[in-house]
Structures are given as structure tokens and as C-alpha cells.
């Protein structure tokens, strides 16, 4: 296990290093110095910034300094927010994004699991078709389409919830959460249904039935756990999907989150924020995938042993 974890951590560092280098050289490839295209800085300010970030030095030195700054979590200063520290800007925006992400993940997977279970336990009935239909719709309709429809009907037409902004506490988070949750919901429902159907047709379920276990015991004592453990493996892609979704959903509902800031920065060519957020997202997703893999090993007894002996 320790060997595996070490190996994974080394891979994570290599991956982050590659992303950082990739980002750096892409930025360098852009026409002219990114700083010079920033309109808001006076020549004096520019010189100060250039000196601070070593933009007057040769490329390899810049690269090393860039990497060094990154290790210190220093991504420079924003263009659009007049020299504000990028790391601080990202931290300031993290609250709403994390709240939405976690709410959506919990809500989506919970409902998804319930739908998937119902579909598998009541195979080829109206329940099954209904939940499969919801899953296909959730998988197919992009979150931004769903979010705009939700905003138009629930917010504008029926005036049930705040149309946008992050001002009414929890009620402001309901619509964006639902819009974000639809993806994890669909994925979880489909995944749980497939796993559950397979588990239910396995020999050990037949043996449990032959022991005299009731339908309820079979579903919850035997099948449930075995069907849910593999769900952990899709948590990585689900998190990635949530990040993708948050970019548009935060924009649509005008949520002061990381995603909204990122999209705005893309449209305004605010490179320090783009680089900082890119590194932040990469780090977040890589760590989530790492945790998920470790968790899977701990929860599934089959893998637990295999990891222990090797």
C-alpha cells in the first residue's frame, strides 16, 4: 500500500509539473508579453511587475522562477482587478463554488442511487423505464441548457426562487445546485442500475435467497454494498464534470464563484487568473482521483488484501 501511494504521489507531481510547464509555454507562445497587452498598467507599474516576475530575464530563468513561485502558491497579480493577488482572489471565490459543488454532488448521487436501485429492483416495469428516461435526459441535456430553462421558468416566470446572484443565502443556491446535480444524478443512476442488475443475477445472491433471506435483506444486506462500492470509481469523472458544469452554471446564475471568475478572465485575457485557476482545478481533480482510488482500496476487501500483499 505504502509503495502504491508513493508511486501515485510521484505521478501526481509529474502531472502537475507538466501542466504547469504546458501553461507557461502556452502563455509564452501568445503574441507579445501577456503583461504588455494589459491595458490598465502604466509603464512604471509595468516595469515593477516585470521586474517582480522576472519578465525581463531570459526564458529558462523565467521558467524556473515561475515554477518556484508556483510552489509558493504565488500566481502573480490579476490584470482586471488592478493588481490583486491571484491566490487571494481564488480563495475569496472558493466558498460559493465549494458549497454548490458539494451540495450538487450529495444531492445528485443520493437521488441517482435511489433511482438506480429502484430501476434495478423493479426491472422492466414503469419504475425502471421512468428512472432510465430521467437518467438519459440528465446525461444528454447539457447543464447550461438545463440551467437556463430552470432560471427562465422557476426564476423569471413563476418567481419561486431568486433568479440569480448570491444574496439570499440558501435559496440562492437551490437552482444552481439542481442544475449542477443533474449530471451526477444521471451518471449515478445509470451506474447503480447496471451494477445492481449484475449483482442481483450473481450466484451469491441466489445463495442468499436459498438461505431464506427476504427480498429486503437480499437487496440491502447483500446487493446494495456490492453495487455501490464500484460507484466510487466514477467519483473522479463526476468531480471533473462538476467543475465543467460550474463554469457555465455559475455564469448563468451570476454566482461569485471560481468558475464565474475564470470564464470572465478568459473573456478578458486575464492570464494570471487563468493560469492560477487552471493549476487550482488540476490540483483539485488530481487529488480527488487520488483520494478516490485510495478509498476504493480501503472499502473493497478484495482490493484491500491485494494491495497489502503486493
Amino acid at each position: 500500500m505504502a509503495k502504491y501511494v508513493t508511486k501515485r504521489i510521484i505521478y501526481m507531481i509529474i502531472t502537475l509539473f507538466l501542466i504547469a510547464s504546458f501553461t507557461f509555454f502556452l502563455m509564452k507562445m501568445l503574441p507579445g508579453s501577456p503583461i504588455s497587452s494589459a491595458p490598465k498598467l502604466t509603464p512604471e507599474q509595468l516595469a515593477v511587475v516585470e521586474a517582480k516576475y522576472g519578465l525581463d530575464k531570459p526564458l529558462p530563468e523565467q521558467y524556473l522562477q515561475y515554477l518556484g513561485n508556483m510552489v509558493k502558491l504565488d500566481f502573480g497579480v490579476s490584470f482586471q482587478f488592478k493588481g490583486a493577488d491571484v491566490t487571494q482572489l481564488i480563495i475569496n471565490r472558493a466558498g460559493p463554488s465549494f458549497q454548490l459543488g458539494i451540495q450538487a454532488l450529495v444531492l445528485g448521487t443520493l437521488i441517482g442511487i435511489i433511482l438506480g436501485m429502484i430501476a434495478a429492483l423493479k426491472q422492466n416495469t414503469v419504475w425502471d423505464y421512468g428512472s432510465t428516461l430521467i437518467a438519459i435526459f440528465g446525461l444528454s441535456i447539457p447543464s447550461f441548457v438545463f440551467a437556463t430553462l430552470l432560471q427562465y421558468w422557476v426564476g423569471v416566470k413563476w418567481e419561486l426562487l431568486p433568479v440569480a446572484l448570491w444574496k439570499n443565502g440558501f435559496s440562492s443556491s437551490i437552482m444552481p445546485t439542481i442544475a449542477l446535480a443533474i449530471g451526477p444524478l444521471a451518471t449515478a443512476a445509470r451506474f447503480v442500475r447496471t451494477e445492481m442488475v449484475e449483482v442481483l443475477s450473481s450466484d451469491y445472491i441466489l445463495l442468499a435467497k436459498a438461505k431464506g433471506a427476504s427480498r429486503f435483506e437480499i437487496a440491502f444486506k447483500h446487493a446494495f454494498r456490492n453495487a455501490l462500492i464500484p460507484l466510487i470509481t466514477v467519483m473522479g469523472p463526476l468531480a471533473a464534470g462538476l467543475v465543467t458544469g460550474s463554469l457555465v452554471v455559475e455564469q448563468i446564475f451570476a454566482i461569485p464563484g471560481i468558475g464565474e471568475q475564470f470564464v470572465k478572465s478568459i473573456n478578458m485575457n486575464d492570464f494570471p487568473i487563468i493560469m492560477g485557476t487552471t493549476m487550482f482545478y488540476s490540483f483539485l481533480l488530481i487529488v480527488i482521483i487520488f483520494i478516490v482510488d485510495i478509498l476504493y482500496g480501503i472499502i473493497d476487501p478484495r482490493i484491500r488484501l491485494a494491495g497489502g500483499t503486493k
Binding site: 450473481s202 450466484d203 451469491y204 441466489l206 445463495l207 442468499a208 435467497k209 436459498a210 438461505k211 431464506g212 433471506a213 427476504s214 427480498r215 447483500h222 454494498r225 456490492n226 462500492i229 473493497d300 476487501p301 478484495r302
Partner: peptide, 28 residues
């Protein structure tokens, strides 16, 4: 009924299956 049958299965009549590799619950 299914309920009555559950009382017989495993108590009065029980069964051994063909493949021992798959007939035990892997996570219990």
C-alpha cells in the same frame, strides 16, 4: 407464499451451487 417459502429455504431445504468461486458474497 413467498414468505412461507423463505421459512423453508435454508432451514428445511438448502442448496449447494456449482461454482464456489462466485457463490459467496465477496464483501461479507
Amino acid at each position: 407464499s413467498e414468505k412461507e417459502m423463505q421459512k423453508i429455504r435454508g432451514k428445511d431445504i438448502s442448496m449447494i451451487f456449482q461454482d464456489p468461486m462466485t457463490s459467496l458474497n465477496p464483501t461479507m
